[in-house]
Design a protein around this nucleic acid. Structure first.
Length: 571
RNA sequence: UGGGAAGUCGUCUAAUUGGCAGGACAUAUGACUCUGGAUCAUAGAAUUGGGGUUCGAGUCCCUGCUUCCCAGCCA
């Protein structure tokens, strides 16, 4: 019976098609039951949450099946790649919590080998130097429905190809004069098989090999070789490479090399977000955001600065699963993951974002009490702290309504509420600006017998407000963020409207006159807190000023109630 | 219109490979609460259409429909 239950539990464990492949391979002892994956970014931009999915998948699979995962920079195109990106990618992967030990590789490490393999293809009459122009190559390739035609250079003798290829490498030609092509089938219905270019001339310095090379291998030729050289068993990539798999397999067969299995999965799409390096670069370059690490960016660096934890991103990657169908994941799931994580770990503090003065008329002037507050009700081991309480306080503007709507149980004239951890107060008088009518100040009385937040007579109050003592609180700046795009799928109507036309004009709100508890005065950059009744906030690293970035707001039930209230009164 | 791939609750994803369509998020309702947070409980909600095989089909077969990818000397 016990065994039966266990079997059922195992079968309930979420699976995905890649794990199924791996487990089948393990059961047949393929590759001596070795599991070896790799994460192969091109260092031409910053990593985003889509890469995080791939990183978690590849490193996760390796650790789950006692295998290894390599970090490999696919640096075959010096025109787009930079050391800055290499460094940021390494740091982002480490931040996510993964470790490649000594298995850091570069495609450029293998340039000599690639060159030898290319010569071998030439010798086997499986590759030739083509001297057609870019335009002509395109023309000869044919179209989706029409087959291509053979290049006039296709029958060049081996010796001539070898000589030309050698001179290409020696820098004897200008860019575009010649390319090396695989000799496959110009009539293939798969365009990738119509004699693809495998080497091109680029006279540009490479961030690692300098000026040693002026010919560079194309992705299709290089990638399968990189995988093979590193004895990768499962080469996991995204769906758009499905059409490239026959080519991947072709090179390895022609060269009779160790043959990893390429497996494709659907890349991540997130609602209200764009996840393409090109588009993200556009946002950065045109100043729509402040940089790659702008807290609104879906980059790892952006999430980090926004206050997301690596744990929450890994949890998210696990929960979205892996499949082959195109999907658009609800960003609410990501927000759920970070709330769930931070709920357990973040210290609770009080911060008043939009302050209004509140004076307790019957509280002695000059008196200051130290009020004890629990740091995290979800984790008692986080202890308690003392908060100063005095006659003049700040509370949140939205916590007072002169004419409260139904179901509003915060402060209003004549009503009693609780100040968190402190006393019951009752609103006695509202001071307004004579000209504008704006509420300037609230005068209240407190019940000295309610200290700690309860009374002996057992009377209940519905509202509990957060507060700070005016004289003791610390000034801070707070950045509130909303989604960067107003459209669920900003790339959907790309043809008609540029994705940038869906940018949310109110994606950031900067609040400059916030007041926070004194214990936050020296909060370390990167540290995370829950501002009670608001959300989770992270200290931004900035010069001297105390700045908090909002990671995610708390779920706001009252906002929902109020919204539905408004809707019903309108209709 | 050639080739490749994919269609399961609103969203993402499972289904021991032909045997009770499950989970999470989201939504709604209620309980509880010194955070309108958290927590707990409950509810609604799906196999792309049409045939077929079968005792039995999300799964196999036929046929339609829809979506995505491919014509870089990018990856």
């Amino acid at each position: 019976m016990e065994k039966k239950d266990k079997v059922r539990l195992d079968s309930v464990k979420p699976q995905n098609f890649i794990k199924n492949i791996i487990e089948k391979d393990l059961s047949t002892n393929k590759n001596d039951s070795r599991i070896h994956t790799r994460f192969p970014p091109e260092p031409n931009g910053y990593l985003h949450i889509g890469h995080a999915k791939s990183i978690c998948l590849n490193f996760g699979l390796a650790s789950e099946y006692n295998g290894l995962c390599n970090l490999r920079f696919d640096d075959t195109n010096p025109t787009k790649e930079e050391v800055e990106y290499v460094e940021s990618i390494k740091s982002d992967i480490r931040w996510l919590g993964f470790n490649w030990d000594d298995r850091l590789f570069y495609a450029s490490d293998y340039f000599d080998k690639f060159y030898e393999y290319a010569k071998q293809l030439i010798k086997n009459e499986k590759a030739y130097v083509c001297s057609l122009s870019t335009e002509k190559i395109k023309e000869y390739r044919g179209t989706l429905t029409q087959p291509g035609k053979n290049s006039p250079y296709r029958l060049r003798p081996v010796e001539e190809n070898l000589e030309l290829f050698k001179r290409m490498r020696a820098g004897k030609f200008k860019e575009g004069e010649h390319v090396l092509r695989a000799k496959i089938d110009m009539a293939s219905p798969n365009l990738n098989m119509r004699d693809p270019v495998i080497y091109r001339i680029i006279h540009e310095s490479h961030h690692r090999t300098g000026n040693k090379w002026c010919i560079y291998p194309m992705y299709d030729f290089a990638h399968c070789l990189e995988d093979s050289i590193e004895r990768i068993t499962h080469s996991i990539c995204t769906l758009e490479f499905e059409d490239h798999r026959p080519l991947y397999d072709w090179f390895l067969e022609q060269l009779n090399l160790f043959h990893p299995q390429q497996i494709e999965f659907a890349r991540l799409n997130l609602s209200y977000t764009v996840l393409s390096k090109r588009k993200l670069l556009e946002l950065v370059e045109h100043g729509y955001v402040t940089g790659w690490d702008d807290p609104r960016m879906p980059t790892i660096a952006g999430f980090k600065r926004r206050g997301y934890t690596p744990e929450s991103i890994r949890d998210f990657s696990e929960r979205i699963g892996v499949a082959k169908r195109d999907s658009l994941v609800d960003v609410a799931l990501l927000e759920h993951c970070v709330r769930e994580d931070l709920n357990k770990r973040a210290m609770r503090v009080m911060a008043v974002l939009r302050p209004i003065r509140l004076i307790i008329d019957n509280y002695p002037e000059g008196k200051v009490e130290e009020i004890e507050a629990i740091n995290n009700p979800e984790d008692i081991s986080m202890g308690t702290r003392k908060i100063p309480f005095s006659r003049i306080l700040y509370i949140e503007q939205e916590d007072f309504r002169e004419n409260p709507p139904k179901k509003y149980f915060r402060l209003s004239p004549g009503r009693e509420v609780r100040l968190k951890h402190a006393y019951y107060i009752k609103c006695e008088k509202v001071i307004k600006d004579e000209k504008t009518g704006e509420v300037k100040e609230l005068h209240c009385t407190y019940d000295p017998k309610s200290k700690g937040g309860g009374t002996a007579d057992g009377r209940k109050v519905r509202g509990t407000l957060h507060w700070v003592s005016a004289a003791h609180s610390v000034k801070a700046e707070v950045n509130l963020y909303d989604r960067l795009f107003i459209k669920e799928n900003p790339v959907e109507c790309d043809k008609k409207n540029d994705f940038k036309s869906y940018l949310n004009p109110k994606s950031v709100e900067i609040l400059k006159s916030c007041r926070v508890e004194p214990c936050l005065a020296n909060a370390a950059p990167g540290s995370r807190f829950q501002f009670m009744r608001h959300g989770y906030f992270c200290v931004d690293s900035s010069n001297g000023k105390l700045v908090f970035n909002c990671t995610v707001q708390l779920r706001d039930t009252w906002a929902k109630i109020e919204k539905s209230l408004n809707n019903t009164t309108k209709s």
